[in-house]
Simulated scan of single mutants.
Amino acid sequence: MSKIKVGIVGATGYTALEVARLLTAHPQAELVAATSRADDGRSLAEIHPSLAGRCDVPIEVLDPESIAKKCDVVMCCLPHGASAETVHALVQHDVRVIDFSADFRLSSLDVYEKWYDVKHPWPERVGKTVYGMPEFFAKQIATADVVANPGCYPTSAILPLAPLVQAGLIDTDDIIIDSKSGVSGAGRSAKVATLYCETNESISAYAVGSHRHGPEINDLVGRISGKPVQTLFTPHLTPMDRGILSTIYVRRGQHSADEMMQCWRDQYASSAFVNPVDHLPATKHVAGTNFVQMTARDCGDRAVLVCAIDNLAKGASGAAIQNMNVMFGLPEVTGLR
């Protein structure tokens, strides 16, 4: 088969860089177009010097019709609100889209507009767009015109929680999620809170009780398991480039951590990337990969679940490549090992 032609909209950020990096090693895909409002006329390697000698695609101003003619699929790496408008325009020109924003992840328009404080530019598609987690939605992803790429924190919580909730192994109304992320999760634009002197040798909680990934976790765990859940989610910023470690506290009733591990082994037996492990996962164990490591431990009447992912890989760009592979009938691991 001919190579999949890929475009990136919003090419300046870390997720766009990670997509480009992964595509340089993908045997069946080729990056052919990239757009940025501020960098028209430059090359992708000028914006991301680590791509020098590997990816010299010129940057252009977005014209949905023009990029659709060049591409089989477009990775849309724009902020919420702006992304939905662009995705809508691209789909009108018959190109498939993987959207990195939160614009199509949630089931409810009201929940989206409450948490993101914007009017949705394409409200008809909210709740009707497949969530890009092939571990649960591969069949729908295969034929989708738009795929909502998952959030990074939600990935590290949904994968361990959904099977356990579905199997009835944990309480659904007492779930505490403590997540720690590398600084790349905050994006590439300059912010005081992510300056070196602010983050080095420090760890801090943020958006306590108000982080937008909380509703996404509740929505998707409920959607997958068929049972409503309530979680208490707190994110933390840690002084590392990349990675997420989520430590999740659940009430286990009469069920043991060994039962939870077996539930995961059964659920993910055919998964290319999700690995229940006996050791305690660390971010370095999965850095730069699309792999997920998770384990469970008994602790009194609770169980402690620990999950590690790379926020730029399985938490963003690696997941997008995995979704692209499913959309075009390739093995999920293509270009990701």
Score class of each variant (00 low, 15 high):
Lys191Thr: 04
Gln254Tyr: 12
Ile47Asp: 04
Arg54Asp: 03
Asn218Ile: 08
Trp115Met: 01
Met240Gly: 14
Leu164Glu: 07
Asp298Ala: 05
Val208Phe: 14
Ser317Glu: 00
Asn290Tyr: 13
Gly318Leu: 10
Ala16Tyr: 00
Glu85Asn: 13
Leu17Lys: 11
Ala162Leu: 13
Lys139Ile: 01
Glu30Val: 00
Ala269Asn: 04
Val19Lys: 02
Thr15Val: 03
Glu85Asp: 14
Leu232Ile: 08
Arg251Cys: 13
Glu18Phe: 08
Ala89Ser: 15
Thr295Tyr: 07
Ala148Cys: 03
Ser2Pro: 01
Ser271Arg: 05
Val91His: 07
Arg188Thr: 02
Ser181Cys: 13
Trp264Leu: 15
Gln140Cys: 09
Gly168Pro: 05
Arg337Trp: 09
Gly182Met: 09
Ile158His: 14
Lys5Arg: 03
Asp39Tyr: 14
Ile244Ala: 00
Cys152Thr: 04
Pro79Val: 04
Ala157Tyr: 11
Ser256Leu: 14
Asp40Glu: 13
Ser50Thr: 02
Leu232Pro: 00
Ala167Gly: 09
Val192Thr: 15
Glu113Trp: 00
Ala186Glu: 15
Lys69Cys: 07
Leu159Asp: 12
Thr12Ile: 08
Thr289Glu: 04
Val74Met: 07
Asn200Gln: 13
Met260Asn: 02
Ala205Tyr: 12
Leu90Pro: 00
Ile98His: 03
Asp40Arg: 10
Glu30His: 01
Ala193Ile: 11
Thr129Ser: 10
Gly182Val: 05
Asp173Glu: 15
Tyr196Thr: 06
Asp145Asn: 09
Gln322Pro: 00
Val304Ser: 10
Tyr131His: 06
Ser107Arg: 06
Ala148Arg: 00
Asp171Ile: 09
Ala33Glu: 14
Ser317Ile: 00
Ala20Phe: 08
Met260His: 01
